[in-house]
Simulated scan of single mutants.
Amino acid sequence: MNADERRDTIDRTGDSAPRSSETGVTTKTAADRAAVGFTGILSPLGIVDRGMAIFEAVVLAIGTLALACASVANVAGRFLFGQSLYFAEELSQFLVILITFAGIGFAARHGRHIRMSAIYDQLPDLGRKITMILIALVTAAIMFVLAWYSYFYVSSVYGTGRISPVTRIPVFLTLIWLPIGFAITGIQYILTAIANLTRPDVYLSVSVIDTYEDTETQV
């Protein structure tokens, strides 16, 4: 089949997916499959997921930009004017806490946490789905327990009335991201378990399908 005939075939079928030269069967890579959203009775979960995604993106963007600006301004002040920003180190510590604990939920949503998958990878699809559901539920439970304990820790710090020595910010405000981050991460893993229970594919997170993409590099 020449190039013109192939274009005609694509125009008629509306399918430009690669075809096997031996079998003529259309082959689609796993990357072509998009993650399915929550629909029907589960549509409120989709709203929750999108809301958390926006919250995480905004918090991480603001925190990262603020940390970068503070660091650059501190270095510039030191080398250009011989005077560092007196609050830069303390502010950077607060922002690192924010970015870290807001980022664990973001990483969970995008399936970016480190996984030990030597046994998991050898399982069939059903076995991987069951294992992923168990992993998601156990991890969610751990996250909620950590959120519970961190809430009491933040409450105890609030009770002491501690104030940061330089910026004079109440210390409990800088630690409030601990329970928030753990709780958001727990919710993400609950949504992952629900996604695996209600959808045919195996999901590493609510928006990431577990796939194997074999890419060949021509030497």
Score class of each variant (00 low, 15 high):
R112C: 09
A183I: 04
G159N: 04
I119P: 00
R109W: 08
I41V: 10
D49V: 01
T217P: 00
S155G: 04
E5T: 10
A70K: 00
A70N: 10
T27F: 15
G40N: 03
T39K: 08
L191A: 07
E56S: 04
H113E: 10
G37R: 06
T198W: 05
I209L: 15
L80I: 12
I180T: 13
E213G: 01
L65W: 08
F144V: 06
L95Y: 06
F38T: 03
A66V: 07
A140R: 01
F182L: 10
P170D: 11
I104F: 09
R6H: 14
Y203A: 10
A17P: 01
G77N: 09
R78G: 12
T9S: 12
F106C: 05
H110N: 15
G40K: 01
T9W: 15
Y153W: 05
D201M: 01
T139A: 14
I114G: 03
L123N: 05
A17T: 07
A88Y: 09
A88D: 13
V96T: 11
K28N: 15
S156Y: 08
P124Y: 11
Y189K: 00
I209F: 11
I163Q: 10
T29K: 11
V219W: 11
A195H: 03
V157W: 04
D32S: 15
R112W: 15
V75H: 03
R168T: 08
F152I: 00
Y158M: 11
I41E: 08
E216N: 03
Q93A: 02
R19M: 14
A73H: 03
H113P: 05
F81Y: 14
S84I: 08
L175W: 09
M52D: 06
Q83E: 15
Q122R: 13
T192P: 04
S207T: 12
Y153R: 00
Y203E: 12
S92Y: 02
A195Q: 04
Q218A: 11
V206P: 01
L95W: 05
D125G: 07
A73G: 09
L146W: 10
P124T: 09
A118N: 01
A102P: 02
G63Y: 07
Q218N: 07
S21P: 12
I187C: 08
P170M: 09
R168P: 00
G46E: 05
G51S: 14
L126C: 08
A118M: 03
P124W: 12
G40P: 01
G37Q: 07
T185R: 01
F38V: 03
H110I: 06
A30V: 10
T64H: 02
R12S: 14
Y158K: 10
N196E: 14
F79Y: 15
A68I: 14
T131C: 12
S84G: 09
I133M: 11
V59D: 06
